[in-house]
């Protein structure tokens, strides 16, 4: 009896230790960056995990930088636009793929997947030339377009998997109740697929927010340069100084919106939303 209880306790302890190890492994770099961002310039190489003295000097420097506030605004705008422009058509496409039978339906899904597998490095060069010719170079649209193209397949796949879980009777009931196909999607399917919509939105937003390749190749000024690129272009207060502290501070700042977004959306990502729809 006691032997079994203690064995169980030991097992729980082991589980807890394993979880702790995984969390530490995942969060250690983040914690290190937070620590760096709070250190004084002279302490950067002191090898300590906790700063000797906490200073917000690095954050002040980041926001006083010419580039950074503009880059933050660009990142916000471009990632948000890409998210909306990708998820809304993806919802229409996924609904059609799941509910209508039309020739080439499988081909469409396979094609979408093929596009998602395209290596971005292969298209960034041609895009550079094309965008310059079209006047899209160094504009928001110039970044939104590739982000949408690359994330649309992912969003379609996520959403069609989600729409499939919604009973078809609900569509049919809405149609008989007098809804057009669009109204059916708007009032019945989309609200029920909200968790799927939020999942897709987060995926697209994070892709656009984190992208470095397109952002560095297709922008040149404050007009459209996003945060990841702006951080790379950081210069210290003198040319002999590496702006490690400022980079760390900027990294922390750009992580916050993503964490905020996920936390915000997590409330909506609750399962079992269709409970009570069809079973008696």
């Amino acid at each position: 009896m006691t032997g079994r209880t203690s064995a169980r306790r030991l097992g729980m302890l082991g589980e807890f230790a394993a979880m702790l190890a995984v969390v530490a492994y995942a969060l250690a770099p983040l914690a290190w960056i937070v620590s760096l961002s709070l250190k004084r310039p002279g302490d950067l190489n002191d090898g300590r995990f906790l700063p000797q003295a906490v200073t917000l000097e690095n954050y002040r420097a980041v926001f006083n930088d010419v580039q950074f506030p503009a880059a933050l605004w660009n990142s916000m705008g471009i990632a948000s636009m890409a998210t909306v422009v990708s998820v809304v058509p993806a919802a229409f496409a996924a609904y059609a793929i799941v509910r209508l039978s039309f020739p080439g339906r499988r081909l469409l899904l396979a094609g979408a997947l093929a596009i998602a597998m395209f290596p971005p490095a292969a298209i960034v060069g041609p895009l550079f030339n094309l965008w310059r010719a079209l006047g899209l170079f160094d504009t928001w649209l110039g970044l939104v377009l590739p982000y949408v193209s690359l994330t649309l397949p992912l969003a379609i796949w996520t959403l069609s998997a989600y729409f499939r879980t919604i009973p078809r009777d609900l569509d049919q009931a809405a149609r008989v109740d007098g809804a057009t196909p669009f109204q059916t999607l708007r009032y019945v399917i989309a609200p029920l697929a909200a968790p799927g919509l939020f999942t897709a939105a987060i995926l697209v937003f994070i892709f656009a927010w984190n992208d470095f390749l397109f952002a560095t190749a297709l922008t040149s000024t404050r007009a459209a340069r996003t945060v990841p690129v702006a951080i790379a272009f950081f210069t210290g207060s003198s040319q002999f100084e590496l702006p490690t502290g400022a980079i760390a501070a900027a990294s922390v700042v750009v992580t916050l919106p993503v964490i905020g977004l996920v936390v915000l959306c997590q409330r909506h990502i609750v399962s079992g939303l269709t409970a009570g729809a069809v079973k008696g």
């Binding site: 009973p167 009777d169 609900l170 049919q172 009931a173 809405a174 149609r175 008989v176 109740d177 007098g178 809804a179 057009t180 009032y187 019945v188 609200p191 029920l192 939303l273 269709t274 409970a275 009570g276 729809a277 069809v278 079973k279 008696g280």
Partner: peptide, 30 residues
């Protein structure tokens, strides 16, 4: 005609109630 233009109402075997709407909203939907 499309189902919405036939002016018929249907009760499904599964009832097909909209789970995100209250009873009032369900009945008011049409």
């Amino acid at each position: 005609l499309d189902p919405k233009d036939r002016d018929m109402a249907m009760v499904f075997q599964s009832y097909a109630l909209y789970p995100h709407m209250t009873v009032r909203e369900n009945i008011a939907f049409p």
